[in-house]
Amino acid sequence: MGKFFGSSVTKKFVMAVAGLFIILFLMVHLGINFFLLIDDPVPFNSAAHFMATNIIVKVFEVVLMAGFLIHMIWGVVLQIQNWVARPKRYKRTSSSQTSFFSKYMIYLGIIIAVFLFIHFMNFYFVKLGLVEGDHENFHLMANNLFHLPLYVVIYLVSFLFLAFHLHHAFQSAFQTLGLNHNKYTPVIKGIGLIYSIIVPLGFSIIPIVIYFFK
């Protein structure tokens, strides 16, 4: 088993599975977030309450956090190996035709990790009781937060970088898993493009609406 996880191919396998799991989770997260657009705090707060207490969700939460950690650790390890593999760079840098954002995944990832920390300070750590706050009224917390321009900007910029990460990530994960097919790969790329636009855009709508209209 140790050998299985050690190879270049399996590290990417684990990253891809973890990444796809996070991709699924993001859709659930976004779905719940839309309750924030309703003035009545009850639907959002009960959804948040459900997410915080339901036993199955709790299991998923552990898996998700482990997924984030593994994805980040392998991401950094692979990147360091990749830099080491070319100790001397080219003078004229590559102008080969490539998947554009693939070259910046580590930087995009680090930005997302920093955002995650801020985001956890705002919400998740409050839920865990690590940071002070009213963990029965996340609706109010979100409304307060997104009246601060600084946070609106931080969230919006982070979602943009998330979109860039996802644009390469979605189709890349399928290729890593060995799913490359003349007919279906263009479809996967299409879905990935749509996903990487729609989901970050959906997340962005919420702070914007709260800031300007609530």
Binding site: S7, S8, V9, T10, K11, K12, F13, L78, Q81, N82, V84, A85, R86, S94, S96, Q97, T98, S99, S102, K103, M105, H168, Q171, S172, Q175, T176, L177, G178, L179, N180, N182
Partner: peptide, 30 residues
């Protein structure tokens, strides 16, 4: 190094070896 699925190799390969091969290798490996 490891594969980032960037695709520069496929774009520059003089024999147009395709990324489908890498997916196949991954499958075989798993």
């Amino acid at each position: 190094g490891n594969c980032s699925n960037t695709g520069a190799c496929e774009a520059e390969c003089p024999k147009e070896i395709s990324l489908v091969n890498i997916a196949r290798m991954n499958r075989e490996f798993y």
